[in-house]
């Protein structure tokens, strides 16, 4: 299998230490929480990403993140990688995150690029959900 060492490490760490790697859920009804869920079981991957934010100046900052992912090892590693990138970022900074950053960080092979696209879409959706609540 064309997995990079980085994907394997990320996947195993997340699996063995889910709390430290932000696996879990926030109450989706919480006004400070934005939820994004993308993918479909029939396609083999579903990512659910939740951000908890608070206002800072004239923007909002991501204070904490939780996620759950159904999918291949690369999909799980991609979500976990994204989560790490998000904490402490403003919503503007988070929106600017591109899937290629995940591809590079995890050295994803071409056939796994869709995993990173899914991750990028999940943060978009989570931010939209959060902003709609404000």
């Amino acid at each position: 299998m064309a997995y990079s060492k980085k994907v394997v490490e990320k996947f195993e760490n997340t699996l063995n230490n889910p709390e430290a790697f932000k696996v879990g859920r926030f109450d989706p009804k919480d006004a400070n929480v934005g939820t994004g869920m993308v993918g479909a079981p029939a396609c083999g991957d579903v990512m659910k990403l939740q951000i908890k934010c608070e206002p800072k100046g004239n923007t909002h900052v991501i204070k904490d993140v939780k996620f759950k992912t159904y999918g291949c090892g690369s999909a799980i590693a991609s979500s976990s990688e994204l989560v790490e990138m998000l904490i402490g970022k403003t919503l503007e900074e988070a929106k600017a995150i591109k899937n290629v950053e995940i591809v590079e960080a995890l050295e994803l092979p071409p056939i796994k690029i869709h995993c990173s696209v899914l991750a990028e879409d999940s943060i978009r959706q989570a931010i939209e959900d959060y902003e709609a609540k404000q």
Binding site: T14, N16, P18, P41, Y70, H114, D121
Partner: peptide, 27 residues
């Protein structure tokens, strides 16, 4: 068990959601 704890589908299943009724945002 560990992978199910990581799985949003398992979470939905435990919440009593029928996955067949969900409108998925497929890629």
């Amino acid at each position: 068990q560990r992978l199910r704890e990581l799985s949003p589908l398992w979470e939905m299943h435990l919440d009593g959601i029928d996955l067949d009724t969900v409108e998925w945002n497929a890629h």
